[in-house]
């Protein structure tokens, strides 16, 4: 097997409870413990870089990439402000951010780096980086989730990351920050009584985790549209994390998957999962969705159909 530039991948939730109130419930503590396990694995890896794709950083103007060398602020979550503030100071790999921007452009994407004092790094990225890389031992790169992007753009974004890693000869950890089911309770709850919002959400979450545990990343990627329809509150056009993760790590099912924790976060599905490239494959399937190498923009289907 060809050695991957991604040493392993992590799927983790964006909510601040594991960072700010892990003691508030047994579930939050388990999630925190899972983050700690991931942190130790990152520390013991030879990674040069942590790449974060956060669903709580929406962009509109193409794909934004954090490129401030040391972004520093005190972040407060819009909903969970009463849990406390999140002061942060991160270390970004600016060279990689710029290389990724160029690589994305080479593949037809509109992308730009962001390097402004006080830029509001999102809750998901702050939680992930503070828990996974608290001492900034490894520099990071955060990419946005374009709210209008669908599969083709997201797949191509992932491939751009592979291009950039190859150009720079770097080894990375890929971190996706996203819930599974993302419907929260619409009222304030006692954290000790937290549970997944509905049995349907729970059932789907467990099915997704079964796929993760089997290392079936590409299968999950192919299921993304179904997952979006079944258990995602329709804030954006699609459920994109599995597309990004598969395109970044490799579009196949050859992974060793490990579900470190699965708990409710105010009703949403919070899971910490790791995927490590391996030689074993879970089946060889023909997939419905096309692979995409270059983003050509809108296909103008309607215009082409006009007489």
């Amino acid at each position: 097997m060809e050695e991957s530039d991604i040493l392993f991948g992590i799927y983790c939730p964006p909510h601040p409870q594991p960072l700010l109130s892990p003691e508030a419930s047994e579930g939050y503590a388990k999630l925190r413990q899972a983050y700690d396990t991931c942190r130790e694995r990152i520390e013991n890896s030879d990674a040069d870089l942590i790449i974060v794709y956060s669903t709580t950083w929406p962009s509109i103007i193409g794909h934004q990439i954090q490129a401030h060398p040391e972004p520093e602020w005190v972040h407060v979550d819009d909903d969970f402000h009463y849990l406390g503030s999140m002061p942060y100071k991160f270390k970004m790999d600016v060279d990689f951010a710029e290389c990724l921007r160029d690589s994305a452009k080479e593949r037809g994407l509109h992308s730009r780096t962001i390097a402004y004092e006080g830029f509001p790094i999102d809750t998901g990225s702050v939680v992930a980086l503070k828990l996974l890389n608290p001492d900034n031992r490894i520099p990071a790169c955060i990419v946005s989730s374009n709210m209008y992007a669908n599969r083709a753009e997201t797949i191509v974004l992932g491939k751009s990351i592979r291009d950039a890693l190859a150009k720079q000869g770097k080894k990375a950890i890929a971190v996706v920050v996203s819930s599974l089911s993302n419907r929260m309770f619409t009222e304030h709850i006692d954290p000790t009584e937290d549970r997944i919002h509905s049995p349907k959400d729970d059932e789907w979450n467990r099915k997704i985790l079964e796929f993760f545990a089997d290392g079936r990343l590409e299968d999950l990627s192919q299921l993304s549209r179904e997952i979006h329809g079944q258990i995602r509150v329709q804030k954006v056009v699609a459920y994109k994390p599995a597309w990004w993760m598969a395109a970044t790590m490799g579009q196949h099912n050859n992974y060793h998957g490990e579900v470190l924790a699965y708990e409710a976060l105010h009703g949403s599905g919070g899971a910490v999962v790791t995927l490590t490239p391996s030689s074993g494959s879970f089946g060889d399937k023909e997939f419905d969705e096309d692979d995409v190498e270059y983003y050509h923009g809108d296909r103008d289907v309607l215009d082409k159909g006009m007489l």
Binding site: P58, E117, G118, F119
Partner: peptide, 13 residues
């Protein structure tokens, strides 16, 4: 404080 637009940081700080 300072407000930096997350989508248009180039024009709003």
């Amino acid at each position: 404080s300072k407000s930096v637009d997350p989508v248009f940081p180039n024009i709003f700080r």
